[in-house]
Measured scan of single mutants.
Amino acid sequence: TFELKGKVGKVVKIAEDHYLVESEGDKWIAYSDEKLSLGDRVMVVDVDGLKLKVKRIP
């Protein structure tokens, strides 16, 4: 299986209740415990079905 946990991506869209993150050339629906901005670099900390939980990284 394709393992996304630990992968790095970038926030490419902000929606009302989720983010769109591009990682490894694909776009994924993501959510975070912190507020993210367009262009933020993020790391995948968990995968919930087809949704990614991400956190901001420097």
Rank of each mutant, 00 (worst) to 15 (best):
K51P: 03
K51T: 13
L20M: 08
I57R: 03
K10H: 09
S37F: 08
K5R: 03
L20D: 05
E34F: 04
L20S: 08
L50C: 12
V44D: 01
S23L: 15
V11A: 01
I29E: 11
V11L: 05
V12L: 11
V21F: 15
K53Y: 12
F2W: 05
A15Q: 09
D33H: 08
R41Q: 13
H18R: 12
E34M: 05
H18A: 09
T1W: 15
D17R: 10
L36S: 00
G49I: 06
E22D: 05
G9W: 02
R56S: 13
K53T: 14
E16M: 12
D48M: 05
K13E: 09
K53I: 07
E34W: 04
D46W: 04
D17T: 13
L36G: 00
D46T: 03
L4N: 06
S32I: 03
K51R: 12
V44F: 15
K55Y: 06
V12D: 06
F2P: 15
L38D: 05
D17C: 10
A30E: 00
K35H: 10
L50N: 09
K35F: 09
G49A: 06
S37Y: 12
K55A: 13
V45L: 10
S32Q: 02
L38S: 07
I29G: 09
K10F: 06
G25N: 06
L52W: 02
M43E: 15
L50V: 07
K55L: 14
Y31W: 13
L38V: 08
L36Y: 05
G49Y: 08
I29P: 07
E3K: 01
G9Q: 02
R56Y: 13
R41L: 13
D48Q: 08
I57H: 14
R41A: 13
I29V: 07
G25S: 06
D26Q: 13
K51S: 13
S23G: 06
L52T: 03
D48A: 04
S23D: 04
I29Y: 14
M43C: 15
Y19R: 00
K35D: 07
D40V: 07
V54S: 01
Y19P: 00
I14F: 09
E16H: 10
K51Y: 12
E3F: 02
V54K: 00
L38Y: 07
K51C: 13
K53F: 12
L52E: 02
E34V: 07
V21N: 01
R41Y: 13
M43V: 15
W28Q: 02
R41C: 13
D26M: 14
K10I: 08
K27C: 10
H18T: 13
E34Q: 07
K53H: 13
G6H: 02
K53Q: 14
V54Q: 00
I57P: 05
D33S: 07
E3A: 01
P58S: 10
D40L: 04
G25W: 04
E24D: 07
V44I: 14
K55D: 14
D40S: 06
K27V: 06
G6N: 02
W28G: 02
Y19V: 11
K5N: 15
V47D: 03
L4V: 09
V11G: 00
I29L: 11
E24W: 03
K27E: 10
K35I: 11
K5E: 15
V8S: 05
L50K: 08
W28C: 03
R41N: 11
V42Y: 01
D40M: 06
H18K: 10
P58G: 07
D40W: 06
L4F: 03
D46F: 03
F2A: 15
V45H: 06
K27I: 11
K10W: 08
V42K: 00
D48C: 14
H18L: 11
D48G: 03
V47S: 04
A15V: 12
K51A: 13
V44Q: 01
D17S: 10
G6M: 01
D17G: 08
E3G: 01
I29K: 07
V47W: 05
D48Y: 12
V54L: 05
A30V: 13
P58H: 11
K5F: 15
S32H: 02
Y19Q: 01
S32V: 03
K13P: 00
A15D: 10
Y19I: 07
V11D: 00
G25F: 04
T1N: 15
I29S: 12
G49E: 08
D26K: 07
A15C: 10
V45F: 05
E34S: 05
V8R: 03
D26Y: 14
V47A: 04
E16N: 10
K53L: 09
E34H: 07
Y19L: 11
E24K: 03
G6K: 00
K27G: 06
I57D: 14
E22T: 05
V45M: 11
L36A: 02
H18D: 11
D48W: 07
D46R: 02
S23Q: 06
L38G: 04
G9A: 14
T1V: 13
A30C: 13
V12M: 10
A15T: 10
G39S: 11
V44C: 13
